[in-house]
Amino acid sequence: MTALVIDNLSHGFGARQALSQVNLSVEPGSFTVLLGPNGAGKTTLVSLVTGLYNAQQGDIRIFDHSIRRNPLPALASLGVVFQMPTLDLDMSVEQNMAYHGSLHGLSRREANERAGEELDRLGVGDRSRDKVRSLSGGMRRRVEIARALLHRPKFLIVDEATAGLDVAGRQLLLKHVRSLCSEGLSVLWATHMLEEVDPADQLFVLHKGQVRWAGQARELASGRTLEAAFLNLTGHAS
């Protein structure tokens, strides 16, 4: 079953059209990249997919559950790392994890056990009792990834999670999330950074609220660099 199907999605704020007739799908176990420059509409798309608000037109289905008509099973199978940090700074890492676990129906004991596993996998297990405020930006992002995986979702959305991280931190996160696809997790990775795209990735290029290109990343490059092809699509080619 397809992890995500977005069908003819349009949404605007007042006179500004943020997304226009967007079609997109994420296959199970795949790493799909949503690539677009700043202001392309990626965060609006993520907000609509996660049900923060309803789209004005079109349909979004997560594992065949419509986010508008049947949001609860759709959200239960979804893990999200938002672009904006969403951890409580004055609570400890484990308190943040327990809070998230409780919102997904986990008992405190279950949440603590799973949190330990996920934090260890991301190399931050030894900081679980520390206040989030005392962690570096890279560590906070790792905690957010661990938290998004706590309820064992089948589909993970990561919205520009590597923004502001150094190269090593970015690579660590990317490598970890890619490795999860081999365990069956489907991933939608929204970014504006071309270096995060692998030639084998399924790629959607979003620009000014419209999907300008869809296919395998290596097909977009075809004979050129990916950067040149991307700039050509987004109207910045020299």
């Binding site: 996660t50 949001p71 959200l75 969403t86 809070y99 997904h104 129906g105």
Partner: peptide, 10 residues
């Protein structure tokens, strides 16, 4: 941003 954690709970 932490409101998003609450509002995306199933």
């Amino acid at each position: 941003g932490s409101m998003r954690v609450l509002l995306t709970a199933p």
